[in-house]
Computed example of a mutant assay.
Amino acid sequence: MTRTNTLSLAALAAVVLILIVMPLSMDPFGYTLRILCLMLLFCAMGQAWNIVGGLANQISLGHAAYFGIGAYSSTILFSSFGVSPILGSLVGMVLAALFALVLSLPTLRLKGHYFALATLAAGEVARVVANSWTSLTGGPVGISVPYRPDAGIWALQFQTVLPNYYLFLGAMLLVSLVFWLVQTSAFGYRLRAIKENEVAAEVIGVNTYRVKLYASILSAILTAMLGTLYAQFQFFFDPDTIFGVATISVKMALIVILGGAGRLYGPWVGAFVIIPLEEMANSYLGASVAGLSQFAYGVLLIVVILLNPHGLIAMIESLRDRFVRRSRA
Rank of each mutant, 00 (worst) to 15 (best):
M1C: 09
R3L: 14
L7T: 13
L7S: 11
L12P: 00
L17Y: 11
S25P: 08
L33T: 04
R34D: 10
C37P: 07
M45W: 08
A64I: 09
G68C: 04
F78A: 14
L90N: 07
M93Y: 05
A100E: 02
L101G: 07
L108Q: 03
R109S: 04
A116S: 15
A118Y: 00
R127A: 09
S132Y: 10
T137C: 02
G142K: 09
S144A: 13
R148N: 14
A151S: 14
I153N: 09
V161A: 03
Y166Q: 04
V182A: 03
T184G: 09
A186F: 11
F187C: 06
L191F: 00
K195Q: 08
K195H: 11
I204A: 02
V206L: 08
L218F: 00
L218R: 00
S219A: 09
I221S: 01
M225D: 05
M225S: 11
F233H: 01
Q234C: 10
F236T: 08
I242L: 09
T247V: 15
I257A: 01
V269L: 02
V273W: 04
L277F: 09
M280W: 13
A281C: 15
L285P: 07
G286D: 11
A290F: 12
V303D: 07
N308K: 12
G311T: 01
R320W: 15
D321N: 12
D321Q: 14
S327P: 06
